[in-house]
Nucleic acid binder design. Structure first.
Lengths: 367, 367
DNA sequence: CTGTTAGCGCTTTCAT
DNA sequence: ATGAAAGCGCTAACAG
């Protein structure tokens, strides 16, 4: 029933090996022979058997892209960019030449699913794997991940990290592109401090995530540097010191609902807050909604800031002050790295700069 | 180097066949034997060779989900929902039992890439394929798609359409879940007409897409039913008739930029418009930005409406009037259909209702 | 530049 | 309930 390589070979009056060589294009074949083979392929409407090919070659053309939340443009942009570098442009013939099959796998942020997908990809003998976004910091999971990635690398799979910090033992990884979440978080809060804010609420992401921790640390670094935490003696310092660090922080998932609820909670705990910093833009949107529902104005009563600079952030009203991450560029670079089209950065690690975008949602506090 | 089935068999002191049966769980095996095998698997850290398995079984555990734009939550939500039904929950062992590998492929809306991905999936002997979102209406491409899907179905791949109208010859498809784009578009414009709007600009999606056409047709149906197109004799009708149908419509991609530019263009062509209907929520966001940049207020000066009811739409200021599509539910159902966990609707076709969501961005026109 | 020949690692009748 | 053996369709030495 199904057409095989042998059928094509017979029709083209060559050996199966020659057909294979033509199809893979990685071996010299006479032009006339190639023509004949290609014609036979078209005539017979032949489609290569991927599993058979992968089995014999001990490698497949699958490239996995793991994302924490496929409905979040943060991941969608990176994944899409990576795919453009991996999948061939598609010549319209639908014949599918040497392209890789770039596939994105949605872990939903669950460590178990992350591991499962990695196993599935390992089982498929994937050519490469790209892990995007923050990692879960649970030690057991980290160890399991390191072991799994080492095994993948062992089997010849190229592993690239995109928007995720390098692993403790990073030798299994081709390259790690890490966002400067900490620096971005620090500069964002410095901006708020410069405007005159002192009582700043922070809506953090889920606990035990690198992204969450680094952004929060950046924020706290800035606060501490301004003497707003710990044993300082300024009035503001005393008001906001000590446990305020925790009192003014609420954790939750990276979604608008979390931003909404957490902001209501922060407003309840400390009605005097003059600014809310959100873990990302989506959360900031929820925070803004909560502020408005409480009858407060942005930025006159409360300033709001986000992180990522997703496409919709500039259209928020007022436009959202945030930290821009070059998601597309990073994703594309990860794709190239995964394909071996680009040489890894020195040490395999590159830190990607985050740029502060000041817009209408932040202003000096009232009074 | 790599551990094979035979190694496991040797260690468990059984035959390779038995190990295979234990792993696939589709054959009676004595409990004690199973225990022994499973232990050997763990001891050896064995991972099934997917390609070999697929080759022998003539089917793989890959399920492809094609999307037009992975950075668009419209697709992300459907794809994520489908994946929850397809991938096993992940038991945390990372062992990966009978799960399928649900992978999403980003076509970027390009017909050529769509076909290429289908070929790649065919090559992998995918267990199922889910096509999401609007289809390109070019006859040549439709024919190519129909042929390709027929071939996939022939090879045992289950094909499911989600948010895409059924094919002319739909026998290759397990099921088609179509959104009621036309009805939704009609009700949305009826809402505007009821408010008193007569001069309504329409920012449509890309031409030659089913989604674009159906939503636009719904809009025009409503306009025509109100006597606002064609040879009527009312004052409004005369003002807005004939070529106005085209003059008040601008096509563009489904992104905010397109909404921004198109709205500026509509405002230029017809300064008297009192409402802008956008092809989807993202476009509506761009339209809103353009309206504001022109110094006009929403909804006092101009009403704005979108389509889809994406999560951010309720947080827009003012909240966006739109048409809600049950994206998650549809995606999940498509996933179940692809897995054969749910029986297809009668005739293989189900139309999914669209619900009008009236919010703050629409109001009666001024004066 | 092209043909021959072995497998790649697993599933699956067919026996037992 | 388990084992033996025959491929699945392709690639990759190795010749020529």
């Amino acid at each position: 029933m199904t057409v095989t390589l042998a059928d094509v070979a017979a029709r083209a009056r060559v050996s199966p090996a020659t057909v294979s060589r033509v199809l893979n294009g990685n071996y010299p074949v006479a032009a006339s022979t190639r023509e004949r083979v290609l014609r036979a392929v078209d005539d017979l409407d032949y489609v290569l058997n991927g599993p058979a090919s992968s089995l014999a070659a001990a490698t497949s053309d699958l490239v996995g892209i793991l994302v924490n939340d496929i409905a979040d443009p943060f991941f969608g942009i990176m994944a899409g960019a990576a795919q453009t570098e991996i999948g061939g442009p598609g010549d319209g013939s639908g014949r599918a030449g040497g392209e890789k099959l770039a596939v994105v796998c949605n872990t939903g942020g669950s460590p178990a699913r992350e591991l499962t997908y990695l196993t599935l990809l390992q089982r498929q003998r994937a050519a490469a794997v790209i892990l995007t976004g923050g990692a879960v910091e649970d030690p057991a999971h980290q160890a399991a991940m390191a072991a799994k990635l080492a095994k993948l690398a062992d089997a010849g799979t190229r592993v690239v990290l995109c928007g995720r910090p390098p692993l403790p033992e990073g030798e299994a990884v081709v390259a790690a592109l890490a966002f400067d979440n900490r620096g971005g978080g620090r500069r964002l809060t410095e901006h708020l401090l410069t405007l005159g804010h002192r009582r700043i609420g922070y809506v953090a992401g889920p606990v035990e995530r690198t992204t969450t921790r680094h952004r929060l640390e950046g924020h706290r670094d800035a606060m501490a540097a301004a003497g707003l935490y710990g044993d300082d003696t300024t009035t503001e310092g005393r008001l906001a010191n000590g446990r305020d660090e925790d009192r003014l922080t609420v954790h939750g998932p990276y979604d608008r609902r979390s931003g909404y609820d957490a902001t209501l909670e922060l407003l309840r705990r400390e009605p005097e807050v003059t600014a809310i910093v959100a873990a990302n833009d989506t959360v900031a949107l929820g925070a803004s909604a909560a502020i408005r529902d409480r009858g407060l104005r942005i930025p006159e009563d409360i300033s709001v800031a986000g992180f990522d600079d997703l496409p919709f952030s500039v259209d928020a009203v007022p436009a959202l002050t945030t930290v821009r991450l070059p998601l597309f560029e990073a994703g594309a670079r990860a794709g190239r790295l995964a394909m071996g089209k680009e040489t890894p950065p020195p040490g395999g690690i590159a830190t990607i700069a985050a740029e502060l975008m000041v817009r209408g949602s932040t202003a000096p506090p009232r009074k």
